[in-house]
């Protein structure tokens, strides 16, 4: 089962909830909640990954990830321009007497390679980030992607992270999604069984929660909400969830102590063990909702 943790708005506590959920499942590894043992946590916020700061995995492997970009053999190229014609992203252009490639614009679709009538295009992988794999506390399998600074495209890194880091049979997967509601989030969340939305009870929180809920609907996913920093704003988020039929599975009140501990890189379960039963309940609720949806 794959649980995606997203929010719409940044800074609501996705990583706090995702890491706590992972720790809870690991502590209950072997039980009905997590029969295949500790879960796999994938930090899909490849622009600004943070989960590793809390779970502190020992890294077992690091490897580059990239986009296959065209390389044109000048000897065989007739400058017919077909490659530039088919490229939807202007990554190829006929300028002067030859073809110029602009690798930063290339999406790696392979269309030019297929279209070249002379067959003189080969593809070379251009690295845009790295993937890392490791094991964290309590046997949690951990993976994340990190987009290289200056690179625009997060989606290919997220795609490869999910493709290359596979769960053991029956292992639960938790995906910590990036903020926002556009393609990086969709890439992270696609294929999941449940969308857990972490929000805050403020106007910004509510506005972005609505958008995240629409993503959930577009992907046909069962959803639940966690209201973090409860008490700082008003009750419009709770009323929205009620009206939309989105179960509020946990409310974490704002406490300066929790904020401090998180600031110091400590997980919620570590510093506030009284949350352990509440996360067990959360996991149970999610499982039940997913079973129900099936």
């Amino acid at each position: 089962m794959r649980i995606a943790v997203a929010s719409g708005k940044g800074g609501t506590g996705k990583t706090t909830v995702a890491t706590s959920l992972a720790l809870c499942l690991a502590a209950n590894g072997g039980s009905a909640l997590s029969p295949a043992g500790p879960p796999l946590l994938l930090d899909c916020d490849v622009e600004a990954p943070n989960a590793h700061l809390f779970l502190r995995p020992s890294w077992e492997a690091v490897w580059p990830v990239g986009i296959p970009v065209p390389q044109i053999d000048p000897a065989g190229c007739t400058a017919c321009g077909r490659c530039a014609e088919v490229c939807a992203f202007n990554a190829l252009a006929i300028l002067g007497s030859g073809v110029q490639v602009f690798p930063e614009l290339c999406h790696g679709c392979g269309s030019c390679t297929l279209a070249c009538p002379e067959g003189v295009i080969t593809e070379v992988v251009r690295p845009i980030g790295v993937l890392r794999r490791g094991t964290a506390q309590q046997g949690i399998d951990f993976g994340h992607g990190e987009l290289s600074i200056g690179e625009p495209m997060a989606v290919p890194v997220i795609r490869e992270l999910k493709r290359q880091l596979n769960a053991r049979p029956g292992q639960l997967v938790i995906l910590d999604a990036p903020p926002g509601t556009s393609c990086p989030v969709v890439e992270a969340v696609r294929g999941s069984d449940f969308l857990l939305l972490v929000t805050e009870p403020t106007p910004f929180g509510l506005h972005d929660l609505r958008l995240a809920v629409e993503v959930g609907h577009a992907l046909g996913l069962p959803m639940g909400a966690v209201i973090n920093r409860d008490g700082i704003g008003d009750d419009s988020v709770i009323r929205f969830c009620e009206n939309e039929g989105i179960p509020v599975l946990m409310r974490i009140p704002f406490e300066r102590a929790i904020a401090r501990d998180s600031a110091l890189g400590r997980t919620l379960l570590e510093t506030h063990p009284e949350y352990a039963p509440r996360f067990r309940e959360l996991a149970g609720d999610i499982l039940r909702q997913v079973e129900g949806a099936r």
Partner: peptide, 18 residues
């Protein structure tokens, strides 16, 4: 022609000039 390009408008425009 490059005005609506999703990316690389400068390149498409340069190609037009060329």
């Amino acid at each position: 022609p490059a005005v609506g390009a999703p990316g690389g408008a400068g390149i498409q425009a340069a190609q037009f000039v060329s």
